[in-house]
Design a protein around this nucleic acid. Sequence first.
DNA 1: CGGATTTGACCCGCGC
DNA 2: GCGCGGGTCAAATCCG
Length: 184
Amino acid sequence: YESRNNKPKKKAEKRLRLPRVSFLTKSEVDHLEDGYRWRKYGQKAVKNSPYPRSYYRCTTPKCGVKKRVERSYQDPSTVITTYEGQHTHHSPASLRGSAAHLFMPPGFHGLPPPHLMPPGVFHPELMSMMRMPYPSPNMHLLSVPPPPHHHPTSHPMAGTLQQHYFTDYALLQDLSPSTMPNNP
DNA sequence: CGGATTTGACCCGCGC
DNA sequence: GCGCGGGTCAAATCCG
């Protein structure tokens, strides 16, 4: 680890913090499928928690979307997935048969307001599309083609043990991680 | 062999 | 300055 200080000061690019969105998902597995490919680049212990936090980066070049995954220590049955940044590409899971990007939650325009979304089966792939950093006035989805066929009951992961139930979501833009809306 | 993961070291901001 | 906490790097390692 000799040459870490030899950074040729790359034009003083500020490490700007992109807006982040977090999701709470009841899941047995830590890393949820969301239609994108990620490479893990770190893992750190979380203070006051027995569960670690994993750091992922989108594997697509030029796409610097990051993702942090940790299990809630207050409710070990839920995982906290935090996305940071916008994908510069489509989800690689846009293959036929994938239910990703087939529908949007009702009233989805920009950032979801702080009221709960209707409960239902949680689609992490759908979740990964909710990446609008700011609520633009007349924002519509980037390029979501109209669904040719809609199979509401055919989950893309049917057959696996992963059953992600949407429980709640939180917008933790710059909040401290200690503000979980979970009163003991 | 190539790409992803593991894992300790390193970086940085901040509070004291 | 020092330690701590969060975040990242990268060599070693794993795995298909």
